[in-house]
Amino acid sequence: MSKVKAAPPPGCNLNINDPQVQEAAIRIQASYRGHRSRKELREKGPPKFLQELKDVVLVEGSAAKLECRVSAFPDPFIVWSKDGKELKDGPKYCYVFEDPDVVALVVRDGVLADLGRYTVTIKNTFGQTSGSACIIVEVPAKVTKGPDNVKAKKGTTVVLKAEISGEPPPDVGWLKDGEDIEEDERVFYDVGDTDTILTIKNARPTDAGKYEVFVENNLGTDQSFARVDIQ
């Protein structure tokens, strides 16, 4: 016994060839397109940050990554700069774009000169915005050039100079024959940004010996030696 299909309820017949039905479909499609266009218009506008840049620490010889999250439609044009100078995408500085909204800069082969303020500028046809953060460079303490051996005559002034580096700036000390030097008006040392100088006035035979310059910060230590002979 075959089943008989039930007739649709009154008013539910739909003839897709009916001009009124076609007109209604066109109105529905137009309404949807209008809604979609209004939604897109709400999303369009100048770029804005969803997450700001933050300061990062870069250890000498390694890489650091500055990143932020942005909202921008249409897609924005990105420029990174350091202390006001534009940085080109290449071996040293790598522009990074990670879906859906991350913009980043990778700084490779870190050196002390990378310390500074970095700015990202994001712009599209509706406007632009920018944000900044600092890269803080950390460099292990190092004696980059040790003092030279010295031969001097009794009563003269002896000067030992060493070139140093480090960030944070290292603590510096001088030793003679393994003992800390007690500074006075005759024997003293100065510490500059890139060097340290030990001065021995009116040199005596007892000043002869092995001198050591020692540097230290939270990333490392280093030292160098020199021999002083008094004749």
Score class of each variant (00 low, 15 high):
residue 142 K to I: 07
residue 142 K to L: 13
residue 142 K to C: 13
residue 143 V to C: 07
residue 143 V to A: 09
residue 143 V to D: 01
residue 143 V to M: 10
residue 144 T to D: 04
residue 144 T to E: 06
residue 144 T to Q: 06
residue 145 K to V: 09
residue 145 K to H: 07
residue 145 K to Y: 03
residue 146 G to T: 09
residue 146 G to P: 06
residue 146 G to V: 04
residue 146 G to S: 12
residue 147 P to A: 12
residue 147 P to F: 05
residue 147 P to D: 10
residue 147 P to I: 08
residue 148 D to K: 14
residue 148 D to F: 05
residue 149 N to A: 10
residue 149 N to Q: 08
residue 149 N to Y: 00
residue 149 N to L: 02
residue 149 N to W: 02
residue 150 V to D: 01
residue 151 K to V: 06
residue 151 K to S: 10
residue 153 K to S: 13
residue 153 K to Q: 15
residue 153 K to T: 10
residue 153 K to G: 12
residue 153 K to Y: 09
residue 153 K to V: 11
residue 154 K to W: 03
residue 154 K to V: 14
residue 154 K to L: 08
residue 154 K to D: 06
residue 154 K to C: 14
residue 154 K to N: 02
residue 154 K to Q: 15
residue 155 G to I: 08
residue 155 G to T: 11
residue 156 T to D: 10
residue 158 V to T: 13
residue 158 V to Y: 08
residue 159 V to R: 10
residue 159 V to K: 12
residue 159 V to C: 05
residue 160 L to Y: 06
residue 160 L to M: 13
residue 160 L to R: 03
residue 160 L to K: 11
residue 161 K to S: 12
residue 161 K to F: 00
residue 161 K to R: 13
residue 162 A to T: 04
residue 162 A to W: 06
residue 162 A to E: 10
residue 162 A to S: 14
residue 162 A to R: 05
residue 162 A to L: 11
residue 162 A to N: 08
residue 162 A to G: 10
residue 163 E to I: 06
residue 163 E to V: 02
residue 163 E to L: 14
residue 164 I to K: 11
residue 164 I to V: 15
residue 164 I to N: 06
residue 164 I to R: 08
residue 164 I to C: 12
residue 165 S to Y: 01
residue 165 S to D: 14
residue 166 G to W: 02
residue 166 G to E: 07
residue 167 E to H: 06
residue 167 E to G: 00
residue 167 E to D: 02
residue 167 E to A: 13
residue 168 P to H: 00
residue 168 P to S: 02
residue 168 P to V: 07
residue 168 P to N: 02
residue 168 P to A: 04
residue 169 P to N: 13
residue 169 P to Y: 01
residue 170 P to G: 00
residue 170 P to D: 08
residue 170 P to M: 11
residue 170 P to C: 10
residue 170 P to T: 06
residue 171 D to S: 09
residue 171 D to G: 14
residue 171 D to K: 15
residue 171 D to P: 00
residue 172 V to H: 03
residue 172 V to G: 06
residue 172 V to E: 02
residue 172 V to L: 11
residue 172 V to S: 10
residue 173 G to N: 12
residue 173 G to K: 15
residue 173 G to Q: 14
residue 173 G to A: 15
residue 173 G to V: 12
residue 174 W to C: 08
residue 174 W to R: 08
residue 174 W to I: 14
residue 174 W to M: 07
residue 175 L to C: 03
residue 175 L to M: 13
residue 175 L to T: 07
residue 175 L to P: 00
residue 175 L to E: 12
residue 175 L to V: 00
residue 176 K to M: 13
residue 176 K to T: 03
residue 176 K to Q: 12
residue 176 K to Y: 00
residue 176 K to S: 11
residue 177 D to S: 10
residue 177 D to Y: 08
residue 177 D to H: 00
residue 177 D to P: 02
